[in-house]
Simulated assay, not measured.
Amino acid sequence: MQQQELKKDSGHQEHPIKLYLMVWGLLFVLSTFSYLVDYFQFHGLLRWGLIIAFMLLKAGLIVAVFMHMAWERLALVYAILLPPLALLVLVGLMALEGGHTFLTRMLFFH
């Protein structure tokens, strides 16, 4: 009884092992699906879309459960996740501008 009270008083939170095993199993299934994309020889946009979708799902599970972000305060989650998201948006905008510049140069200089 005292051990349970100590765990509550110390602020330390323990999660059931079942949660970690289920997430580990789901990561295994998602990895299997990712490999099956290559096995069934999907091509083009479908292939890359599936691979990226499975990659993002696995990364999200790892960050949420194994890095304990699912149980953190929302302000901390925003502080950690928003800067990389902003960088990805800016990189995407730069890639669009770079493509436009390349096509313009190809049109006028060749």
Rank of each mutant, 00 (worst) to 15 (best):
Q2L: 10
Q2E: 14
Q3V: 08
Q4L: 11
E5R: 15
L6F: 08
D9R: 15
S10M: 05
G11S: 04
G11A: 04
Q13C: 07
Y20M: 05
Y20W: 05
M22A: 07
L26W: 01
L26N: 07
L27N: 07
V29N: 02
L30G: 01
T32D: 09
Y35V: 12
L36K: 00
V37H: 01
H43Y: 06
G44D: 03
L45T: 10
L45G: 00
W48L: 03
W48N: 03
L50P: 06
I51W: 07
I51M: 09
I51V: 12
I52F: 07
I52K: 05
I52V: 14
A53F: 07
M55S: 11
L57F: 04
L57E: 03
A59C: 05
G60W: 00
L61K: 03
V63R: 10
V63Q: 06
V63M: 06
V63C: 02
V63S: 02
M67T: 05
M67V: 04
H68E: 11
M69G: 02
A70K: 09
W71Y: 04
E72C: 08
A75Q: 15
A75S: 15
V77H: 04
V77K: 10
Y78D: 09
Y78N: 13
A79C: 08
P83F: 01
P83S: 01
L88K: 02
V89M: 06
L90F: 07
L93T: 04
M94E: 09
M94K: 15
A95N: 11
E97P: 06
G98W: 10
H100M: 11
T101D: 10
T101A: 10
L103V: 10
L103D: 11
L103A: 14
R105T: 11
M106S: 11
L107F: 12
